[in-house]
Design a protein around this nucleic acid. Structure first.
Length: 561
RNA sequence: GUCCCAGUAGCUCAGUAGGAUAGAGCAACAGUUUCCUAAACUGUAGGUCGGAGGUUCGAAUCCUUUCUGGGACGCCA
């Protein structure tokens, strides 16, 4: 759409005789609300003041000045100038471009190969992988893929929650009530049970909390017994997590969790002292901040906190990867923490502080409330995924029993539904957990887009589409919305990156699917006609862009389903 | 108490560098398959854009205020 928009801006610029610069004109051009109003529109209300003429009059004047071959007509309507693209030329040009560039269509070289680190997923070990972590995982993965599409080198970091007082508490619970055999059989389940029990008992016996803190102190001091238990918990947890990452098709460049920074925090503390930022407050070490509550660096027992480890991690990442941006895909409820963290880094004179971005997202709620691990109120992601996959398999057996590789496709469709459900809406919205919604395969869903892709792919197979050769002359009026949708892809990619918003891509693929399905219902692709090859070229373009769009969301596009 | 986020159709949400008649999906109702995958398509019905002020030629979109829901606020992460 971009180059045609520029052409329209050129036409208007000429006609306006320097009253507005081209950039401003380009910014003002919008997409009309209805198809009968054309493809591009320019509102003249603002000009009315400058030119001291009625908007209607200005529009009428401008409409007469069409000198571009890309426009069929340019007409005045109310205070608007509406431009209609020359459908034949534009259609051929768009299809040609998609078929030439293939999956590179929509690439934007904004990053020049520079690195962006992305902190995503980051589940806590010894706890189940909950629906809440799903959000960070799929949003972060999509942002990584979108960054790469925009020319950056994405570094996916799974900043495991494997350190902190909670593990002292867990060790206490294990020593008091744990059973080695049981933990070996069902590690996460047993450890969670112990963790929940700890918090229940601690309500009556607050001294348990102190014991927990003491054991964490031992961990930080690398006490052998504490450390070996911790290692065991960590290993078992990672095994569980990797099942989920395999299902989702996600890989990380680093799984260095918080513990990794245990020996890198002294340096940070020294640096803070050097800069005279560290002060004592009620026995703890803190950094005072303007307009924000102080940031706690060390507790009175000398152990570190989340913030301390994040400071060390931010510096380490910048030094190790030379990243120009550092994204933290972490829930909205931690906004204050990141404001404090970035503020402390800035005070330290950390050079990359400007490139640090917290990417918050809304919570997964249960009965309108936050899910709490401490109370054992969690929904397990693995169970949801398996549910989705078996439901997809059921559908396949019903609708396409001859399909080869049923299990594989069921996995693609089931996980596609779950991922898409998470990504299709603006990230900041809280989501009330609903298995029913998550497992829906109709309407604005992942499977709907996958289905559209499979349908188009099937046409290419059955129509023996051999690739496009010669001129593309597509005359079906119903094809036009598909063509304009194809044109809009590069803009959707850029916007998704600029706003760190994968839902832009999700909305885009829905839009393209809808346009194609309407076209599909109105035309017989496989009927022999002069239009057949042109129609199949369009179907091919649609498969390319849908597949690429889904890929950016971390969703696969099977050829059949 | 302070701060952050969100309030748009019965439900879930688009639309928010102000622009033409506020759009989808689900649910409801009525249709479409001798024919390319009906996981689709077509139609009907459904709205004081939480409320009140203000800025503007023009506000769901910007400003102020208020209500509702969620969350965060020193030794958890």
């Amino acid at each position: 759409m971009k180059n045609f928009k520029d052409s329209f801006a050129d036409v208007l610029f000429e006609a306006l005789d320097g009253h507005l610069d081209k950039q401003k004109i380009s910014l003002m051009i919008e997409k009309p609300k209805f198809e009968h109003m054309g493809d591009l529109a320019f509102p003249c209300f603002e000009l009315a003041k400058i030119l001291r003429k009625s908007p209607q009059g200005i529009a009428a004047d401008l409409a007469g000045k069409n000198g571009s071959p890309f426009f069929e007509k340019i007409e005045a309507a109310g205070g608007y100038v509406n431009a209609f693209l020359e459908k034949g030329i534009v259609t051929a040009s768009v299809i040609r471009q998609v078929l030439t560039e293939k999956e590179a269509y929509g690439d934007a070289n904004l990053g020049n190969g520079q690195a962006i680190t992305i902190d995503l997923s980051s589940p806590n070990i010894a706890k189940p992988f909950s629906m809440g972590h799903l959000r960070s995982t799929v949003i972060g993965n999509a942002l990584a893929l979108i960054s790469e599409k925009c020319g950056y080198r994405a570094i996916r970091i799974n900043h495991l929650g494997d350190w902190g007082t909670q593990f002292g508490k867990l060790i206490v619970a294990y020593k008091l009530w744990g059973n080695e055999e049981k933990v070996k059989q069902q590690p996460i389940k047993e450890l969670l049970k112990l963790y929940v029990q700890f918090h229940e008992e601690a309500e009556a016996n607050p001294e348990l909390e102190d014991m927990g803190r003491q054991w964490f102190k031992k961990l930080e001091d690398e006490d052998g017994g504490a450390l070996s238990l911790w290692k065991w918990f960590r290993e078992e947890s990672l095994k569980e997590f990797s099942k989920i990452y395999d299902l989702l098709g996600i890989r990380f460049d680093s799984t260095n969790g918080e513990a990794f920074y245990n020996d890198k925090m002294d340096r940070v503390v020294e640096l803070l002292k050097e800069k005279k930022l560290l002060i004592e407050s009620d026995g703890a070490q803190v950094v005072q901040l303007e307009d924000l509550p102080p940031c706690l660096i060390k507790k009175k027992d000398g152990t570190t906190l989340y913030a301390t480890r994040d400071l060390a991690a931010a510096i380490y990442r910048h030094e190790t990867y030379g990243s120009v941006q550092s994204l933290y895909v972490v829930g909205n409820e931690q906004s204050l923490h990141f404001k404090q963290l970035f503020s402390v880094l800035e005070k330290m004179g950390f050079t990359c502080a400007g490139g640090l971005v917290h990417i918050p997202f809304g919570m997964m709620l249960k009965d309108g409330k936050k899910m709490s691990t401490r109370k054992g109120k969690v929904v397990l992601l693995e169970e949801v995924l398996h549910e989705a996959i078996s439901l997809a398999l059921e559908d396949i057996l019903k609708k396409n029993p001859d399909l080869p590789a049923k299990e594989k496709v069921a996995r693609q469709v089931g996980t596609g539904a779950v991922i898409f459900h998470d990504l299709k809406n603006f990230r900041m919205n809280d989501i009330e957990f609903s298995l029913e919604d998550m497992l829906r395969f109709e309407g604005e869903t992942g499977p709907y887009v996958q289905y559209t892709h499979a349908r188009a792919a099937s046409l290419l197979r059955k129509g023996k589409f051999a690739g496009s050769s010669g001129d593309i002359q597509l005359e079906d009026p119903e094809a036009w919305p598909v063509v304009t949708a194809l044109m809009a892809f590069p803009e959707a990619v850029k916007r998704a990156f600029a706003e760190y918003d994968p839902s832009q891509i999700a909305k885009y693929v829905i839009e393209l699917s809808r346009a194609f399905n309407k076209y599909y219902a109105s035309v017989r692709f496989l009927e022999e006609s002069s239009q057949k090859q042109a129609r199949l070229s369009l179907a091919y373009s649609v498969t390319i862009v849908l597949k690429e769009g889904l890929r950016l969301l971390g969703i696969e596009a099977p050829k059949e389903m």
